[in-house]
Amino acid sequence: MHMIMQKKITLRKTIAIVKLSLFVIWFWPLPQDASKRKVLCMKLYQYITLLLMIAVLASMVYALVRNLDDLELVVKSSLGIFPCSHVIWNILCRIVIYQRLQCVTFQMENFCASINAYEEAIIQRDYIDKCVNFYGFCITSFYTSLFALFVGPILQDEPLPAPADFPFDASRQPLRAITYIHQIVCGLYIAAHLCVNASMALLLWLASARFKLLIEDLRKITNIYDFMKCIEKHQQLLEYAKEITFVVRPFALGTVFFSTVSLIVFGLIFITGVSLGLKIQCVFLAVSALLEVFMYAWPAEHLIHISNNIAQIAFETNWYDESENFRRNLQMIILRSQKPILVTLPCGLPSLSLHYYASYLSTIFSYFTTMRMMFEEQK
């Protein structure tokens, strides 16, 4: 029964689900032939979203500055500041690289619309069935966490979902209702922007899938003409993968940076005297932050290996029975495949991979251990 349900999530449904998860922030690029009016509405919506997030961020920073002597409120404000900053970063990145994001998304959709049943079966078996549970769990958890935001003020008898302060009296109606709705809407934006990680991972996974299909084509070549088509397809794929890594980089950098800062803050919370409820909340948030980074590291690792595998598969062809021209072309494709496709982070940070993720976890635990030792020495 589980396998039947899993197979129902096809490639097209996967794209539709990711697209739906980004609906509230209008993140998925418009078609290249979209009308100017639609483009204008999208840009206006993005700027309105940006202003709303800046407003809620300013209110939390204001509360933080005014209540530096209240450790519990400082911690709660910090927990809200980082996701809001992450959303603002994502919006600014999207505005800057929108044309490139639109181009790679358009190519991805075209590829998915043009594949045949055999190719779709390979992608279903090697990618969708293996990844759908993890990314589906992440998207679901991001949105279900909103439920806590809704019911939090009711259960804890607090005026607003997130700690905030204003230079005016926000406890009176209708200002209280407006502020409450504003924070709920921004919480929805945060959940949707966390799903941006899934959309970037989708680009990386489908780039890997195209290399996988190229490997299958290389295994089936029977003449020089098929081989020349594979060389041309390989060159196009390298350019496409390079463009995807450029698009993914700023969003991955934002996720790594804000997740790292959040995890450090969570570590500080555990060694200070805050309430047990807040510590439990931080455990769930820390797991979420670690999942966000893993959402990039996993497909980035696979892209490294699958792009390198092209050289091995090309070498396994019957090149020794072919002409000198065939061998020269084969040598070119092997040389180009020996340089892996990396999702390199800016600012001198290492490339994303599972090895990087392991070192990332090790570094985070080292920071936490160091902070705990310093705290115990000061007692």
Rank of each mutant, 00 (worst) to 15 (best):
H2I: 09
Q6E: 12
I9C: 08
L11Q: 09
L11K: 09
L11D: 01
R12N: 15
T14Q: 14
I17Q: 13
K19Y: 10
S21T: 15
L22T: 09
F23N: 11
W28F: 11
Q32D: 06
S35L: 06
R37W: 13
K38G: 08
L40V: 08
C41E: 11
Q46G: 11
T49R: 05
L52F: 12
M53G: 05
V56T: 15
A58C: 13
A58G: 07
A58I: 10
M60N: 04
Y62L: 11
N67M: 01
D69H: 05
D70I: 00
E72F: 00
S77Y: 00
F82P: 02
P83N: 07
I97Q: 10
Y98M: 06
Q102A: 14
T105G: 06
F106Q: 10
E109W: 08
N110A: 12
F111Q: 02
C112K: 07
I115Q: 01
A117Y: 05
A121I: 01
R125V: 04
K130P: 03
G136P: 13
G136W: 10
I139W: 11
T140Q: 05
S141M: 14
S145R: 09
L146E: 10
A148H: 05
A148N: 11
F150P: 01
V151K: 01
E158P: 00
L160M: 13
A162V: 07
A162D: 05
P163I: 00
P163E: 02
A164V: 11
D165H: 10
L175P: 10
I184D: 05
L188Q: 08
Y189L: 15
A192D: 15
C195K: 08
A198E: 15
S199D: 15
L203C: 10
A207Y: 03
A207C: 15
F211D: 03
F211C: 06
F211I: 06
L218A: 02
L218N: 01
R219F: 00
K220V: 01
M228N: 09
E232C: 03
K233C: 01
L238S: 07
A241I: 02
V247Q: 08
G254I: 02
G254V: 03
V256F: 04
F258P: 01
F258W: 12
S259A: 15
S259N: 07
L263S: 01
G267E: 01
L268N: 08
L278R: 00
C282S: 14
A286T: 03
A300P: 10
N308E: 13
N308P: 00
N309A: 08
Q312T: 12
Q312Y: 09
I313D: 08
I313Y: 06
A314L: 02
F315N: 04
E316Y: 07
Y320V: 05
S323R: 06
L335D: 11
S337F: 05
I341Q: 11
L345V: 05
P350L: 08
S353W: 04
A358C: 05
I364P: 04
F365G: 02
T370W: 14
M374A: 14
F375T: 13
E376R: 11
E377G: 03
